[in-house]
């Protein structure tokens, strides 16, 4: 399948799923957070997860790269089961080292940036490529500088995270994730910890990234971003997917009462 056809329509994208969640269940003790989630994300698709807090959006996102283990169902990422080896009819739990290797393909951006405060920006970016991909310092540095430039922070390579604004830190975090050449990018409320005037610069970087054809799953409360950038919006509540569809339809013309109530409350 050629790239042009793939990106032509959403249906074509959906034919080749990058992420496929089948009946995902997750409990914290007796609290059931995810109650059988089915979700597909196509190659190059941008999906926004929205919903009230405690609805399980972040948990679902963290199940995708196995930061959370799942208690039921299967999480497929790029054709293999995340965290398990499929041999015959049995799923063998993977070693932590193997899981780490699968995670290279999946970039993640956190609400609180989680940059390494004892390293400068450049060191933050080249740490994982050097340790995990065994890249040479010169190769990793060249790529890191290029990515910093693309998020508009070429002049901050030698700064320490504490010296940057929240928006700048989050852009560094995005560049750090991109250094590993991921196939999927996960965003866990990337703008929720930011001052309102800094939200725009981060969303712009994400919009640019979406335009390059990156597969993205974004947990967000930014309805404008969801409407403008997402191919599909998934509304979750109480551990279920309540409603999903093209962004403009779900946000513009919600079908379910829960969705309507939620959208009314965030507006």
């Amino acid at each position: 399948m050629s790239a042009t056809i793939m990106e032509a329509t959403t249906t074509a994208k959906a034919l080749e799923p990058m992420i496929m969640a089948n009946a995902i269940r997750k409990n914290y003790g007796r609290l059931e957070v995810l109650k059988g989630i089915d979700l597909q994300v196509g190659r190059g698709e941008v999906v926004c997860l929205i919903g009230p807090s405690g609805s399980g959006k972040s948990t679902l996102l963290r199940c995708i790269n196995h930061l959370e283990t799942i208690d039921g169902g299967r999480m497929w990422v790029d054709g293999s089961v995340m965290g398990y080896d499929l041999k015959g009819t049995k799923l063998h739990e993977q070693s932590h080292a193997r899981i780490c290797r699968s995670r290279v393909e999946i970039g993640m951006v956190f609400q609180h940036f989680n940059l390494f405060p004892h390293m400068n920006v450049l060191e933050n970016l080249i740490e994982a490529p050097r340790l995990v991909l065994k890249e040479k310092r010169s190769t990793a540095t060249a790529r890191a500088l290029q990515l910093l430039d693309s998020v508009g922070l070429a002049d901050k390579a030698k700064s320490f995270p504490r010296q940057l604004s929240g928006g700048q830190q989050q852009r560094v975090a995005i560049a750090r994730a991109l250094c590993m050449r991921p196939k999927v990018m996960l965003f866990d409320e990337p703008t929720s910890a930011l001052d309102p005037e800094l939200v725009g610069e981060v969303l712009k970087v994400m919009k640019d990234l979406a335009a390059t054809g990156m597969t993205m799953v974004v947990v967000t409360h930014e309805m404008n971003f969801a409407r403008d950038v997402a191919d599909r919006v998934v509304f979750m509540a109480d551990g279920h997917v309540v409603e999903q569809g093209p962004a403009k339809e779900v946000i513009g013309n919600p079908q379910h009462e829960r969705t309507r109530a939620f959208l009314a409350s965030v507006r």
């Binding site: 930061l67 940059l115 740490e127 995990v132």
Partner: peptide
């Protein structure tokens, strides 16, 4: 050291020993 640090390292594919040596202990 904040839990987010080891999570961020894990999400980047850095293994536990390297995370301890390069990320957690220095902090």
């Amino acid at each position: 050291v904040e839990h987010g640090q080891s999570e961020a390292a894990g999400a980047l594919g850095i293994n536990r020993l390297q995370t301890m040596r390069r990320v957690i202990l220095p902090q």
